[in-house]
Design a binder for these strands. Structure first.
Lengths: 248, 248
DNA sequence: GCAAAAGTGTTGTCCTTACACCCATGC
DNA sequence: GCATGGGTGTAAGGACAACACTTTTGC
């Protein structure tokens, strides 16, 4: 049973209806909220994440996610898109809410609750809006020395991505519009940390029948050029299978 | 580019380190935060969700999730467990964060951001702590007239559950410790909204080899009693398969 | 002509599905 | 003895894993 007497739902008598919701809400404790974007990119066969140097002296030299404070009347997703757009100049980017982190001690300046978003983009489709020279792509495999609980946040988003990429066609957000099957396979191998059989990988994607053959080939490669494909998002949306299989 | 001049990370010059994080955090806008628990139970072959009458006059007569305000120094998960424990008396209950909802207009008393948790429990393992007579189990299929955005929250948690139950042994949280295969199948059918072949369903679960045969039988059933099983969580934890299969 | 990667098929195994009959119990 | 659900097996088809050689291009 509750022992304090603040005006929380569990403390109030249930039989009296509250007529002044504004008064009620004003009585609640309030917390600063931020959104943090875990922005993944793919380059040189490595999965990368976009980080910036922390601007807190407390975390001097440590790396931090791109985030910003939620504004008074801004939707959560809008705040995340705003951060993305301001940093990368891109507006049509994959973005999804992953998890909210609210440990009371995660911020040295007081309690701040952050909503983590995961974002995937093609590194070569945009120029970073670098306001200073401290914005960089980092290999996901060697992260350390991060500010706040950002290492934990990246790890959870990375796990989320590993699972998600197997069930949804997210990978294509990380590649150029036209890509070779080798690039696609490299991407899956990098994200999942496994080696895949080339023949079976191709068979699987051709069997899905969501790849459009561009009848074009790679250029400037020091070996036989591979064919280029696009992912047929329209067809995928119409045909996506109703997922069902008990399996654990 | 930002046009206002509040002290958000995107507006500050990046070259100056901030020495007083507390001052910084205090300058951020702050929002009341609640946790809302979508508590699922299973009874009479129907998936149910635990709801209470809203205590806001604004939502008079409408149903609402069980929630409470986040306390100043309380971890998010702790707040959710507190709500669960206060309502159901149960402490060892499955609980997981699902998603954060923060539409600026979701609460009539001002902006309140809520973190939705999903919880699964065996209805018959506890007595509801009913402080008044307005706490009830509702069939998930016929929800309407809910307060706030709670209908949306329930829908998202239900979808989350449908997916999750196929990949993780969550179902056993909704059943008595000892259950028959029929009960298990009924549960899957109710949650997923499909009909399953009885023989194949049994084969699948026996093949997993995570069921412990209790050598006991149902009682007081008007037909041949079925065998009772327990789920072997220990064995599952040791053997759980590394999930990998591109499939979308 | 050599290095490097593209491209291609088959086979065996396993998993999934579809499907029908007898059995044990309560009434 | 009848109604109700418990319990079981098989066959066919589809998906997946393992595996090696030829082709094309750049240099």
């Amino acid at each position: 049973m509750n022992t304090d007497d603040t005006l929380t739902p569990l403390n109030r008598s249930r039989s009296i209806l509250i007529a002044e919701p504004t008064k009620l809400v004003t009585s609640y404790p309030a917390f600063p909220i931020t959104v943090d974007c875990v922005i993944f990119g793919f380059e040189e066969n490595e999965l990368k994440v976009l980080l910036i140097r922390s601007d807190l002296q407390y975390f001097e030299g440590k790396w931090s996610l791109l985030g910003d404070v939620l504004k008074e009347t801004e939707a959560l997703d809008d705040a995340a898109y705003r951060v993305l757009c301001q940093r990368t100049g891109m507006t049509d980017v994959f973005l999804e809410q992953v998890k909210t982190f609210g440990s009371p001690s995660r911020h040295p300046g007081g309690r701040v609750i952050t909503i983590a978003y995961c974002s995937l983009l093609n590194i070569h489709h945009h120029e970073l809006k670098i306001y200073d020279n401290e914005l960089h792509w980092h290999n996901v495999k060697n992260l350390s020395d991060m500010a706040f609980d950002h290492q934990l946040i990246v790890e959870e988003c990375y796990q989320w991505l590993q699972k998600r990429i197997q069930e949804h066609p997210l990978a294509f957000n990380l590649l150029p519009e036209k890509f070779s099957l080798r690039e696609l396979q490299n991407l899956y191998e990098a994200i999942l940390g496994v080696e895949l059989d080339r023949r079976n990988f191709r068979k699987k994607f051709f069997a899905m029948d969501f790849l459009i053959d561009m009848e074009e080939f790679e250029e400037n490669v020091p070996h036989r050029p591979g064919k280029l494909y696009k992912f047929n998002f329209d067809k995928y949306e119409k045909n996506k299978r109703k997922w069902f299989a008990i399996d654990f």
